[in-house]
């Protein structure tokens, strides 16, 4: 079981941050202010998160849990937007990022909560929100990477895409190479995470369970389930988002519409 941490314990740990800031001053690294501000943000954000989670856990209501998941997906949508060099419209990118995460996340996570993890009730926020958060966070990285790769590829290969359209190919055929490239790139973080897991670090959920006193093998099994959920959500989310963007970047007359990209914003 994890012991209760007192404010003194946290203050003692934060001394390491001040040590880092001091070193920055001595070595003229100019990162001391950044370290302290990031540390302060981390404390405030975690306190706010814990307070909100406390309220949601106390409510233990299915709609509150689903609403919290949707809110997490919307924040992830903004994060996807922030990682685009040339988004296909700001609102559109946030909507698609959040939409595919809600869609793919719910399709994968909700049945897993009910049937595999056997949370009681299935929407128990103590289980549902951390699992959804880990799944959405990992999928978000893949979706952001995939959309950015797609917009880069169609701008770079615009003449090839248009040559295929001029040869009478449909927009799906003309964009097949950029779509494939974007999906492959978007799934690389998930593939790499599964390949390297356990070699360098003990993964997050497993670490949490071990610290909470769970059996190590049981913790490993939960980690496996989580990674399969992440992989499933990433595949559905990346494929859905890239195909949505392929539709967005063309019109009903099978024309490439680069004018819909927002560059330099």
């Amino acid at each position: 079981m994890t012991p209760d941490l007192t404010p003194f314990d946290i203050a003692a740990a934060s001394a390491l941050l001040f040590l880092g800031a001091g070193l920055s001053l001595v070595l003229s690294l100019h990162v001391g202010r950044g370290l302290l501000v990031a540390g302060a943000r981390m404390v405030v954000q975690l306190v706010v998160l814990a307070t909100l989670l406390g309220l949601i856990f106390a409510a233990a209501n299915v709609w509150v849990t689903l609403g919290a998941m949707a809110a997490m997906a919307v924040f992830a949508g903004f994060e996807v937007l922030a990682r685009q060099d040339a988004p296909a419209g700001r609102r559109w990118t946030v909507a698609v990022g959040a939409g595919v995460m809600i869609g793919a996340g719910w399709v994968v996570v909700l049945p897993a909560l009910a049937l595999l993890i056997e949370a009681r009730p299935w929407y128990a926020p103590q289980v549902a929100l951390p699992v959804f958060g880990m799944v959405a966070g990992s999928s978000m990285t893949g979706i952001a990477l995939a959309l950015d790769t797609f917009s880069t590829a169609i701008r770079r290969d615009v003449r090839i895409v248009e040559a295929r359209l001029l040869a009478g190919h449909t927009r799906g055929e003309a964009l097949s190479d950029p779509v494939r490239q974007a999906i492959r790139t978007g799934l690389m973080p998930t593939i790499n995470a599964m390949s390297a897991i356990g070699l360098v670090t003990i993964p997050g959920m497993m670490t949490g369970q071990i610290l909470a006193g769970a059996d190590v093998m049981q913790a490993a099994k939960y980690q496996m389930v989580l990674m399969f959920l992440i992989a499933g959500t990433s595949v559905l989310g990346v494929v859905g988002a890239v195909h949505a963007m392929a539709r967005r970047m063309t019109d009903h007359r099978h024309r490439l519409r680069l004018d819909r990209l927002r560059t330099g914003e």
């Binding site: 248009e162 001029l166 040869a167």
Partner: peptide, 16 residues
């Protein structure tokens, strides 16, 4: 549109 472009073929100045 694909049928139209098979009937009306364009060769651009910089073919790809």
């Amino acid at each position: 549109a694909p049928d139209y472009r098979r009937r009306v073929a364009l060769v651009p100045a910089e073919p790809a």
